[in-house]
Computed example of a mutant assay.
Amino acid sequence: MTYDRLVCANCAAPVAEGRCAVCRANRERLKEEGPLGGLTPAMLLTLLIALVAAVALLAALQTA
């Protein structure tokens, strides 16, 4: 999940704005989740479709 859509329970502001210490801590934690942590579901779906297309292309090239 991306932090730009989260709302802080402490200050009721978007976490992306980092208005309070809780927001800032959660924003940093979400940034450090890893290489796929910041991807949106649409981006993950696009990557999955590209991977399936690449595998299908490789399979088609090996049979030809």
Score class of each variant (00 low, 15 high):
residue 44 L to W: 01
residue 59 A to P: 05
residue 10 N to K: 12
residue 41 P to L: 06
residue 6 L to M: 10
residue 30 L to E: 05
residue 38 G to K: 02
residue 25 A to H: 05
residue 50 A to H: 04
residue 52 V to Q: 07
residue 22 V to S: 11
residue 36 L to T: 14
residue 27 R to T: 02
residue 6 L to E: 07
residue 37 G to Y: 02
residue 31 K to A: 15
residue 29 R to F: 03
residue 63 T to N: 10
residue 35 P to A: 14
residue 56 A to I: 09
residue 38 G to R: 06
residue 25 A to Y: 04
residue 13 A to M: 11
residue 11 C to K: 00
residue 48 L to V: 13
residue 45 L to P: 00
residue 58 L to C: 14
residue 43 M to C: 09
residue 12 A to T: 13
residue 21 A to S: 11
residue 53 A to L: 15
residue 2 T to F: 10
residue 8 C to F: 00
residue 7 V to H: 01
residue 40 T to P: 04
residue 35 P to Q: 12
residue 10 N to L: 10
residue 58 L to N: 11
residue 50 A to Y: 05
residue 48 L to Q: 13
residue 15 V to S: 03
residue 37 G to W: 04
residue 30 L to P: 03
residue 56 A to Q: 11
residue 3 Y to G: 06
residue 58 L to P: 02
residue 63 T to M: 14
residue 33 E to Q: 08
residue 59 A to H: 10
residue 39 L to R: 10
residue 26 N to I: 01
residue 17 E to M: 06
residue 24 R to Q: 15
residue 47 L to D: 04
residue 37 G to T: 01
residue 32 E to F: 07
residue 58 L to A: 14
residue 18 G to F: 06
residue 41 P to C: 01
residue 56 A to E: 11
residue 27 R to S: 04
residue 63 T to P: 03
residue 28 E to T: 07
residue 62 Q to N: 13
residue 28 E to P: 01
residue 47 L to V: 05
residue 33 E to A: 06
residue 27 R to V: 00
residue 34 G to R: 00
residue 8 C to D: 04
residue 64 A to M: 15
residue 63 T to A: 15
residue 13 A to T: 08
residue 38 G to Q: 07
residue 47 L to C: 08
residue 19 R to N: 10
residue 15 V to P: 02
residue 7 V to D: 01
